[in-house]
Design a protein around this nucleic acid. Structure first.
Lengths: 348, 348
DNA sequence: TGAACTCGTGGGAACGTTACCACGGCGATT
DNA sequence: AATCGCCGTGGTAACGTTCCCACGAGTTCA
């Protein structure tokens, strides 16, 4: 029942031209008579012709396929990125092969292999770790996304402006009277962690805060990771109000759960600042104050950069997208209750 | 600099066999000597051979590509589905082309065309509307996901068991003393809406409730849609406690926002029951009580069904996955405060 | 007026793989 | 001992497109 799909040869025959001419007409090349082009287009419509991307890719080397390798499509931030990339790719007639690496090295490697075998035109990658061997051997054009840019200065990358983001967060914390925030960070193996931490330290120094004295806990970049990290934080000795800067919103929300479970209240007893700007932060109670990355826009720009990279155009280099602070209710305003300098006397 | 990628011919030459034998060895066919196979595999490793999926697809008709068309990868429920599908596909050495239709007809059509041109082996589709012309003409194996199964009895489909889900929700509402819940539904054009509504009516009849008397509002399947629907609901006359069954969690969370904005409290003044089971529901305050669909599992099963469909195996038919109730804090327990029958005297 | 050049067209090769067929060698059957 | 069938192998065609080259007609320039 399933009839053979019409090929360019069927179109050419129907239009009464050679397949070369048909091909030129269909691909929009210039050197074709208007009359011939019209005949070919009509014929194509009549027989229901649809180009075979495989054959095109085979012959021309361009598949119209892009790869996207992110940690987890289930993480709302990465879903935003994927959506942006998807839409921009679609505008240019290309499709996206989406993979989740789960921050797993071997999984990432196998995804990259799959992309190579599919002969994608290029890929957008958030690399798992600082070991770039796999990327070096990738052999296709690619653009990095996320905080890994600096480790790979030779390729272009798109990420959020971490320095600016941390400054936003710190300014906000300080303006609310939190001069010695604790940190909840991702696992030690992640590049993003080092990036965040270093920037944080720089900002501490600028403000005469000793970063070594600040409490700090690790966890997976998940709700559960944030919850357990916060539990450990709460078990430490502390004086007065505790403020926490979490490296990602899911962890921040997990921290909020831990606070509630400990019988404490946010923001009365504990203040929490997140990082990502995922929608869920708007529904927590209190609403999560956070530094929002422009996820969707990062995806869009990454695709643009990738097209440049593929075309061999002078590379965009590293693009850092500005973040913005979304103020909701998870930070207490200590500056109202206390004399201006008092807050810095307590440990946290 | 970029050396030509090694082909099967390079491997054959290096192994000292014909490309036919090399091909058989690499594709794991049986009729090859162990010795020859080993030589070929060694040679392949030595030259760094990686199969060209395009050429395979071209010749064999199998591309190892599957399509996934969902409304929005940014919706956490659909992200779960995508993740499940992705993982299952990867287990079988196939990759996923992911598209978001935004419930837009023309966008869906163009995605389907892209899938055809990419010569995917098959697709998993959550169709936009009840007009199946595009699907009829799709021309490739596909599996439906979501509530659209019944309109397309001839193809296999995977969805949640709406009947069971609505029963779970209704039982829970009634057990808490809410005998006349209001509804927040999706747009009239969506199939899912009709499906939900009809099942709901059946359950009302079973419980001697007149569904026509229940308040009902529409909105997009988004936070904002739920928020405005709830605002309209709150503007209506009502007596006593208001209970709302929302057709999706995002709408339920939006409704919760509207309640707060109206100066009311959930669950003290308004009870809200959601539907989907997205993670964000765990962080709202109060936590969202909801009927959770097995999103990930739906994705997994859809891929399994699709493989069956592609292989022409006796089709699975329609698979309905059971849902489960997640009780958090968004429903008031009226059964404690009031005489058993009193609740049904009020309108809502 | 003849050479050079442009333009639209057509024919064939090429991309890398698998499907198909034919062949030779070997063991089993008649 | 001749035949049949099986197994491993190699050669060739085919998938559908684009690229490259050659050709003829028309145009321009010396």
């Amino acid at each position: 029942m399933q009839r053979r799909r019409p090929t360019i040869i069927d179109v050419a025959r129907k239009a009464g031209v050679s397949k070369s001419t048909a091909g030129r007409a269909l691909s929009g090349a210039s050197n074709v008579t208007d009359e011939a082009r019209e005949r070919v287009l009509d014929a194509a419509r009549a027989v229901g012709y649809e180009r075979n991307d495989l054959a095109v890719g085979m012959r021309s080397g361009r598949t119209g396929l892009l790869g996207l390798v992110i940690p987890d499509i289930t993480n709302p931030f990465w879903a935003e990125v994927a959506r942006g990339a998807q839409d921009r790719a679609a505008e240019n007639g290309t499709s996206l092969l989406v993979f989740s690496s789960d921050w797993d090295h071997s999984r990432e490697a196998s995804h990259l292999r799959a992309l190579r075998q599919a002969r994608v035109d290029g890929a957008i990658i958030n690399p798992v770790a600082d070991n770039f061997d796999d990327l070096d051997r990738f052999g296709l054009p690619f653009v990095l996304i996320g905080s890994s840019a600096e480790r790979f200065p030779a390729t272009s990358s798109v990420g959020s402006d971490i320095a600016q983001a941390v400054r936003l967060g710190m300014d906000h914390l300080v303006s609310k009277g939190h001069h010695a925030p604790a940190l909840i960070l991702g696992p030690k193996s992640r590049i993003a962690r080092a990036r965040f931490l270093r920037t944080f330290h720089e900002h501490c120094v600028d403000r005469d805060i000793d970063p070594a004295a600040l409490p700090m806990e690790d966890g997976e970049y998940t709700v559960e990771g944030g919850r357990t990290a916060m539990m450990r934080l709460l078990q430490r000795d502390r004086v007065g109000h505790l403020a926490v800067f979490a490296a990602n919103d899911l962890m921040a929300l997990g921290a909020m759960v831990a606070v509630r479970e400990a019988g404490l209240r946010c923001p009365e007893d504990v203040s929490i600042l997140g990082f990502d700007g995922i929608p869920a932060g708007a529904f927590s109670w209190p609403g999560l104050t956070t530094v929002a990355k422009p996820g969707r826009e990062i995806g869009v720009r990454a695709v643009d950069c990738l097209f440049d990279e593929i075309a061999g155009r002078p590379e965009h280099g590293r693009v850092f997208m500005p973040c913005r602070l979304i103020e909701r209710g998870s930070l207490a305003d200590l500056s109202l209750n206390q004399p201006r300098r008092a807050a810095s006397s307590g440990r946290g």
